[in-house]
Nucleic acid binder design. Structure first.
Lengths: 157, 157
DNA sequence: TTATAATTAGTAATCGTTACGAATTAAGCA
DNA sequence: TGCTTAATTCGTAACGATTACTAATTATAA
């Protein structure tokens, strides 16, 4: 199905309207599905198709999309929130590799935590609804061309 | 070894001084080893033993401790940075369970990611220097007593 | 059309964090 | 001991991301 139509229906189902502003924002997200855009980035991109749109609307819309589980808010500790369209499927198959050298961010869409989550249920009595798994490190290919060295003290444990 | 002495040596090794202010902050961290204190919390706590200490000093000291790998900065997406003393050992055995109902935060000190990190090295050519693994969910014991329901849209993927 | 509610725009306020300049303390050396 | 220099601290101003607020606009429904 046309993703815009699909999202429009999700809006309607919760008594929200897909206004032109909201649609423009959703389109930016769809056009940049591979990225994890910050609010500022969405704002810049959306301005090309909807110049008068306000920053606050971007914030509000992303929050709404988040509430509707259409996008996912994430925080890589760089001081800005980032948003990503959330496929219907891979809620639990969504991990990140963040390169210390070039800053590149790769997504891994495999379910690596299923067994661990079973174990949490059984051993800890903890029922997982959401998780987050990020790795920081260096690509071997990056190491070769002028490594800037590891940045200290990132807000990722 | 006395942890303060140990830390004092780590300071000296990098040509930093363990001033009374810094020592007071380290003591707060040692006294609350189980918690993940925010800057504000450290600030409040340290004021009982060192009333004149300034907030900026807390920020600067925690940053320094982070640089020396004595503490670890982390971000649970609640808008404030949190800090935790970093045992010499469990750099890779440090995961979190965050309860949706009561907000309780439990630490898991087992190395659950070793195999995955090997796989990243081999399959992705990615050498992990740091990682982060947080689970959100509910404790079964919590569910029974007045569940507040799942909070939407936390900045944890 | 008119009344009501939802949405938007623009901007002020908030809040965590960082930067800055002056004051204080410590260290090195004559 | 005094003097010089560097490190550290303090208080606060500045900053940047986000949120809150008010007026204006748009849609909805009687």
């Amino acid at each position: 199905m046309n993703p815009i139509v699909n999202i429009s229906q999700q809006f309607a189902a919760q008594n929200y309207k897909l206004t032109p502003q909201r649609e423009a924002i959703v389109k930016v997200l769809l056009d940049n599905e591979k990225d994890h855009l910050s609010v500022e980035e969405v704002y810049m991109l959306v301005k090309t198709s909807y110049p008068h749109l306000g920053l606050a609307t971007v914030y509000r819309t992303l929050e709404l999309l988040c509430e509707l589980h259409i996008v996912e808010k994430m925080d890589f500790g760089d001081g800005v929130a980032r948003y990503d369209l959330r496929g219907d499927d891979h809620a639990h198959m969504h991990h990140h590799l963040i390169c210390n050298v070039c800053g590149r961010l790769e997504e891994i869409k495999e379910d690596w935590l299923h067994d661990l989550e079973l174990r949490l249920e059984q051993e800890y009595g903890f029922n997982v609804t959401d998780h987050r798994l990020d790795f920081k490190g260096t690509y071997n290919t990056c190491k070769r061309n002028g490594c800037k060295g590891e940045k200290d003290c990132q807000a990722v444990s």
